[in-house]
Simulated assay, not measured.
Amino acid sequence: MDSNQLTAIIITAIVTSGIALFSQVLFEAYTRSNNKTIIRRNIVTSLIADLESKMILFDSRMKELGDIELKDPLKYEFIFFPIRSNYFTVFESLAVNLGYISNEILKTDIILTYSELKGFFDSLQALEDISKQAQVIPKNTNSDLIAQLATNHYWYANKLLNETLPELLHKINNLKNNLEEYYPQI
């Protein structure tokens, strides 16, 4: 074998290896990019479904409370939304992957809206706690404690259901719409 043949074999091997390496790098980049797209789509789809379920939950609970008087303290009842489960498992499981969302404003909106939702659920839990305190007081008791609990509960329930909830539902709907607009851009 002469030196020209040996040089041709070496050059062919180097070029072929270079092409294979370049192809592998391109394939890995494409796969990573495709995986990020899939992750982004899964995050957005899951958040949209989660927000829709919360809107349905609030709507059904508000229908249950439709006949309860919140404006007249003389007709007031101790109402609450029982919270028996963690309504944030979807968000909590996705939070670690929010970095995949490339729109920084949307990412901030997601975090802020869910923080407000969590705060709202904490407030609902506080209403339930006040209601439970009122329920253990004997019915024939005419004490300052029951009056104080009723006043606190009345004020808190009105604020939550007439001010906070409509604002929160507006934010949830805006976030849902923003996520739906972002999805085709992924």
Rank of each mutant, 00 (worst) to 15 (best):
D2R: 07
S3F: 03
Q5D: 00
T7S: 09
A8S: 07
I10P: 02
I14N: 09
I14M: 12
S17R: 10
A20I: 13
S23E: 12
S23L: 07
V25L: 15
L26A: 15
L26Y: 15
F27S: 09
Y30P: 06
Y30L: 14
Y30D: 13
R32I: 10
N34P: 00
N34T: 12
N35R: 15
N35G: 01
K36S: 13
T37D: 12
I39F: 03
R40A: 05
R41H: 01
R41W: 00
N42G: 00
N42E: 04
N42R: 04
N42Q: 05
L47P: 02
A49P: 01
D50M: 02
E52R: 14
E52N: 10
S53L: 08
S53F: 02
K54I: 05
K54E: 01
M55W: 03
M55Y: 01
L57Y: 11
F58R: 09
F58E: 06
M62H: 11
M62T: 14
E64W: 05
L65Q: 10
L65Y: 06
G66T: 12
D67Y: 12
D67I: 04
L70I: 05
K71S: 11
D72T: 10
L74E: 11
Y76C: 01
E77C: 08
I79M: 14
F80T: 13
F80K: 13
F81E: 06
F81I: 15
P82N: 10
S85V: 07
S85G: 06
N86E: 07
Y87F: 10
F88E: 07
F88W: 13
F91M: 11
E92V: 13
L94T: 08
N97G: 03
N97E: 10
N97M: 12
L98H: 14
I101M: 07
N103Y: 01
N103R: 07
I105Y: 09
K107C: 00
K107G: 01
I111A: 10
T113F: 01
T113D: 07
T113V: 14
Y114C: 01
S115N: 12
S115H: 04
E116D: 11
L117G: 03
K118N: 02
G119D: 13
F120N: 12
F120L: 14
F120T: 12
D122S: 12
D122H: 14
S123N: 14
S123Y: 09
S123F: 09
L124N: 04
Q125S: 14
A126N: 09
E128N: 09
Q133R: 10
A134V: 07
A134C: 04
A134R: 05
Q135M: 09
V136P: 00
P138N: 09
N140V: 05
T141P: 00
N142K: 15
S143R: 08
L145S: 07
I146Y: 06
Q148K: 12
A150P: 00
T151R: 02
T151N: 10
Y156N: 08
K159E: 06
K159T: 08
K159H: 07
L160I: 14
L161F: 13
L161M: 15
N162A: 12
E163D: 11
E163W: 08
P166N: 06
P166M: 04
L168S: 09
L168N: 10
L168D: 01
L169F: 03
L169E: 13
K171C: 02
I172Y: 00
N174L: 03
L175Q: 06
L175I: 04
N177K: 08
N178Q: 15
L179S: 02
E181D: 01
P184G: 04
I186V: 05
